[in-house]
Lab assay of single mutants.
Amino acid sequence: NITNLCPFDEVFNATRFASVYAWNRKRISNCVADYSVLYNLAPFFTFKCYGVSPTKLNDLCFTNVYADSFVIRGDEVRQIAPGQTGNIADYNYKLPDDFTGCVIAWNSNKLDSKVSGNYNYLYRLFRKSNLKPFERDISTEIYQAGNKPCNGVAGFNCYFPLRSYSFRPTYGVGHQPYRVVVLSFELLHAPATVCGPKKST
């Protein structure tokens, strides 16, 4: 009989979030998941669920729940959905087409922007091929755009693959930082360890 609440607040209220290319994953298990708490945590810009209804979450049980978190800019949030393409979905964080879970995003301009520009958040701009779903690539190998090998040196047709967002508070919403948490629900042929409040007794 599990009584402890799932530590969603640790994920959502973390002081620092990860850069999207090096997104963070927390496995959540053996706890009571009260998803209604999430609705009250922040004024969400996005709370979209796929393959599951957000209002039914509190009635369900899962084997595992994974919470992935990272920062992107406002106009990239739409890429965090099944079947999307674009720089983020292709080279940084890719959801599977049959994704079961929820994408939660909110504006973090007050936390993640600086007047002089916050350069701490990076994204991958160049990659030889698209990522597979939930693949994480943290390599910093020089990207070869031409025929000549780069031998690890940046220059003509040889690019450092990561680029930094420079978040400034005066930017338009599309270029402001957004914190994203992706909850993916895993149903294996194994005992369910993460249940809503109704199912945990």
Score class of each variant (00 low, 15 high):
residue 1 N to M: 10
residue 2 I to S: 13
residue 4 N to C: 09
residue 4 N to E: 13
residue 4 N to G: 13
residue 4 N to S: 13
residue 5 L to C: 08
residue 5 L to D: 10
residue 6 C to V: 06
residue 7 P to R: 13
residue 8 F to L: 13
residue 9 D to Y: 11
residue 10 E to V: 09
residue 10 E to S: 11
residue 10 E to N: 09
residue 11 V to N: 05
residue 11 V to F: 08
residue 12 F to I: 10
residue 12 F to E: 04
residue 12 F to D: 04
residue 13 N to W: 07
residue 14 A to M: 08
residue 14 A to Y: 06
residue 14 A to P: 06
residue 14 A to H: 08
residue 14 A to K: 10
residue 15 T to S: 14
residue 15 T to C: 06
residue 16 R to Y: 14
residue 17 F to T: 03
residue 17 F to K: 03
residue 18 A to C: 08
residue 19 S to F: 02
residue 19 S to W: 03
residue 19 S to E: 02
residue 20 V to T: 04
residue 20 V to G: 02
residue 20 V to L: 02
residue 21 Y to E: 02
residue 21 Y to P: 04
residue 21 Y to S: 04
residue 22 A to N: 13
residue 22 A to W: 07
residue 23 W to N: 02
residue 23 W to F: 08
residue 23 W to V: 02
residue 24 N to C: 09
residue 25 R to D: 00
residue 25 R to K: 03
residue 26 K to G: 04
residue 27 R to T: 13
residue 27 R to H: 13
residue 28 I to P: 02
residue 29 S to D: 09
residue 30 N to I: 05
residue 30 N to Y: 09
residue 30 N to E: 08
residue 31 C to E: 06
residue 31 C to P: 06
residue 31 C to L: 06
residue 31 C to G: 05
residue 31 C to I: 05
residue 32 V to S: 10
residue 33 A to V: 14
residue 33 A to H: 08
residue 33 A to W: 15
residue 33 A to E: 05
residue 33 A to S: 09
residue 34 D to P: 08
residue 35 Y to R: 09
residue 35 Y to M: 14
residue 35 Y to D: 07
residue 36 S to L: 08
residue 36 S to I: 06
residue 37 V to G: 12
residue 38 L to V: 12
residue 39 Y to D: 11
residue 39 Y to P: 12
residue 40 N to G: 11
residue 41 L to D: 10
residue 42 A to K: 15
residue 44 F to T: 14
residue 45 F to S: 15
residue 45 F to K: 15
residue 46 T to L: 12
residue 46 T to Y: 14
residue 47 F to Y: 13
residue 48 K to Q: 11
residue 48 K to N: 11
residue 48 K to A: 08
residue 49 C to T: 03
residue 50 Y to S: 03
residue 50 Y to N: 02
residue 50 Y to P: 00
residue 51 G to I: 04
residue 52 V to M: 11
residue 52 V to A: 09
residue 53 S to G: 10
residue 54 P to G: 10
residue 54 P to L: 15
residue 55 T to Y: 13
residue 55 T to D: 14
residue 56 K to N: 13
residue 56 K to S: 12
residue 56 K to I: 10
residue 56 K to G: 12
residue 57 L to I: 10
residue 57 L to S: 09
residue 58 N to R: 12
residue 60 L to E: 10
residue 60 L to R: 10
residue 60 L to H: 11
residue 61 C to K: 10
residue 62 F to D: 07
residue 62 F to T: 10
residue 63 T to D: 13
residue 63 T to K: 14
residue 63 T to H: 12
residue 64 N to L: 11
residue 64 N to S: 13
residue 64 N to T: 12
residue 65 V to D: 01
residue 66 Y to M: 11
residue 66 Y to L: 11
residue 66 Y to W: 13
residue 67 A to E: 05
residue 67 A to S: 05
residue 68 D to S: 04
residue 68 D to K: 04
residue 69 S to Q: 06
residue 69 S to A: 07
residue 71 V to Q: 01
residue 71 V to E: 00
residue 71 V to M: 04
residue 72 I to W: 01
residue 73 R to W: 00
residue 74 G to A: 04
residue 74 G to H: 03
residue 75 D to H: 10
residue 76 E to V: 03
residue 76 E to Y: 03
residue 76 E to L: 04
residue 77 V to F: 05
residue 77 V to M: 09
residue 78 R to M: 09
residue 79 Q to G: 03
residue 79 Q to V: 03
residue 80 I to N: 00
residue 80 I to W: 02
residue 80 I to K: 01
residue 81 A to R: 08
residue 81 A to W: 09
residue 82 P to Y: 02
residue 83 G to I: 05
residue 83 G to Y: 11
residue 84 Q to E: 10
residue 85 T to Q: 13
residue 85 T to C: 09
residue 85 T to L: 07
residue 87 N to C: 13
residue 87 N to Y: 15
residue 88 I to Q: 02
residue 88 I to P: 01
residue 89 A to D: 01
residue 89 A to P: 08
residue 90 D to M: 09
residue 91 Y to L: 08
residue 93 Y to V: 02
residue 93 Y to H: 02
residue 94 K to N: 06
residue 95 L to E: 00
residue 96 P to F: 03
residue 97 D to A: 12
residue 97 D to P: 12
residue 99 F to A: 01
residue 99 F to M: 05
residue 100 T to Y: 14
residue 100 T to A: 07
residue 100 T to V: 14
residue 101 G to E: 00
residue 101 G to Q: 01
residue 101 G to T: 02
residue 101 G to S: 01
residue 102 C to P: 02
residue 102 C to A: 04
residue 103 V to D: 00
residue 103 V to W: 03
residue 104 I to V: 12
residue 104 I to M: 12
residue 105 A to N: 08
residue 105 A to I: 07
residue 105 A to W: 15
residue 106 W to D: 01
residue 107 N to M: 03
residue 107 N to R: 04
residue 108 S to K: 01
residue 108 S to Y: 01
residue 109 N to M: 05
residue 110 K to L: 08
residue 110 K to S: 11
residue 111 L to I: 14
residue 111 L to F: 10
residue 111 L to A: 12
residue 112 D to T: 03
residue 112 D to E: 03
residue 112 D to M: 03
residue 113 S to P: 01
residue 113 S to N: 02
residue 113 S to E: 00
residue 114 K to F: 07
residue 114 K to L: 10
residue 115 V to R: 12
residue 115 V to S: 10
residue 115 V to A: 12
residue 116 S to R: 12
residue 116 S to N: 13
residue 116 S to E: 15
residue 116 S to V: 08
residue 117 G to A: 04
residue 117 G to Q: 03
residue 118 N to E: 07
residue 118 N to A: 06
residue 118 N to G: 06
residue 118 N to D: 06
residue 118 N to Y: 04
residue 118 N to Q: 07
residue 119 Y to F: 07
residue 119 Y to P: 10
residue 120 N to C: 07
residue 121 Y to M: 10
residue 121 Y to T: 04
residue 121 Y to W: 04
residue 122 L to F: 11
residue 123 Y to A: 13
residue 123 Y to R: 04
residue 124 R to N: 00
residue 124 R to L: 00
residue 124 R to D: 00
residue 125 L to R: 05
residue 125 L to T: 06
residue 125 L to Y: 10
residue 126 F to A: 05
residue 127 R to L: 02
residue 127 R to C: 01
residue 127 R to T: 02
residue 128 K to R: 12
residue 128 K to W: 07
residue 128 K to P: 12
residue 128 K to I: 08
residue 128 K to Y: 10
residue 129 S to M: 10
residue 129 S to W: 08
residue 130 N to I: 13
residue 133 P to E: 06
residue 134 F to W: 13
residue 136 R to N: 04
residue 136 R to M: 07
residue 136 R to K: 12
residue 137 D to H: 04
residue 137 D to T: 03
residue 138 I to L: 14
residue 139 S to R: 10
residue 139 S to Y: 05
residue 139 S to L: 06
residue 139 S to F: 05
residue 139 S to K: 09
residue 140 T to H: 12
residue 140 T to R: 12
residue 141 E to L: 08
residue 141 E to M: 10
residue 141 E to A: 11
residue 142 I to E: 02
residue 142 I to D: 00
residue 143 Y to E: 01
residue 143 Y to I: 03
residue 143 Y to W: 04
residue 145 A to Q: 04
residue 145 A to V: 07
residue 146 G to N: 03
residue 146 G to D: 04
residue 146 G to M: 01
residue 147 N to S: 08
residue 147 N to G: 07
residue 148 K to S: 14
residue 149 P to G: 11
residue 149 P to T: 06
residue 150 C to T: 00
residue 150 C to D: 00
residue 150 C to Q: 00
residue 151 N to I: 08
residue 151 N to K: 14
residue 151 N to G: 14
residue 152 G to I: 05
residue 152 G to Q: 10
residue 152 G to P: 05
residue 154 A to H: 07
residue 154 A to E: 14
residue 155 G to P: 03
residue 155 G to K: 08
residue 155 G to L: 03
residue 156 F to P: 11
residue 156 F to Q: 06
residue 156 F to E: 05
residue 157 N to K: 02
residue 158 C to H: 01
residue 158 C to D: 00
residue 160 F to C: 07
residue 160 F to K: 15
residue 161 P to W: 04
residue 161 P to N: 04
residue 161 P to I: 04
residue 161 P to L: 04
residue 162 L to P: 00
residue 163 R to W: 15
residue 163 R to N: 15
residue 164 S to A: 11
residue 164 S to I: 03
residue 165 Y to N: 01
residue 165 Y to L: 01
residue 165 Y to A: 00
residue 165 Y to E: 00
residue 166 S to R: 05
residue 166 S to P: 03
residue 167 F to G: 01
residue 167 F to R: 02
residue 168 R to M: 04
residue 169 P to W: 04
residue 170 T to W: 06
residue 170 T to Q: 07
residue 170 T to C: 03
residue 170 T to V: 02
residue 172 G to F: 01
residue 172 G to V: 00
residue 172 G to H: 00
residue 172 G to Q: 00
residue 172 G to Y: 01
residue 173 V to P: 07
residue 174 G to V: 03
residue 175 H to G: 00
residue 175 H to R: 01
residue 176 Q to K: 02
residue 177 P to Y: 03
residue 177 P to C: 02
residue 178 Y to T: 07
residue 178 Y to L: 07
residue 178 Y to P: 00
residue 179 R to V: 00
residue 180 V to Y: 01
residue 180 V to M: 07
residue 180 V to F: 03
residue 180 V to S: 02
residue 181 V to K: 01
residue 182 V to H: 01
residue 182 V to I: 08
residue 182 V to L: 02
residue 183 L to S: 01
residue 183 L to C: 02
residue 184 S to Y: 10
residue 185 F to M: 13
residue 187 L to G: 14
residue 188 L to C: 15
residue 189 H to L: 11
residue 189 H to A: 15
residue 191 P to T: 12
residue 192 A to D: 13
residue 193 T to I: 10
residue 193 T to K: 12
residue 194 V to N: 12
residue 194 V to L: 11
residue 195 C to A: 08
residue 195 C to M: 07
residue 195 C to V: 08
residue 196 G to P: 13
residue 198 K to Q: 13
residue 198 K to M: 14
residue 198 K to F: 14
residue 199 K to L: 12
residue 200 S to L: 14
residue 200 S to R: 14
residue 200 S to G: 14
residue 201 T to N: 15
residue 201 T to W: 14
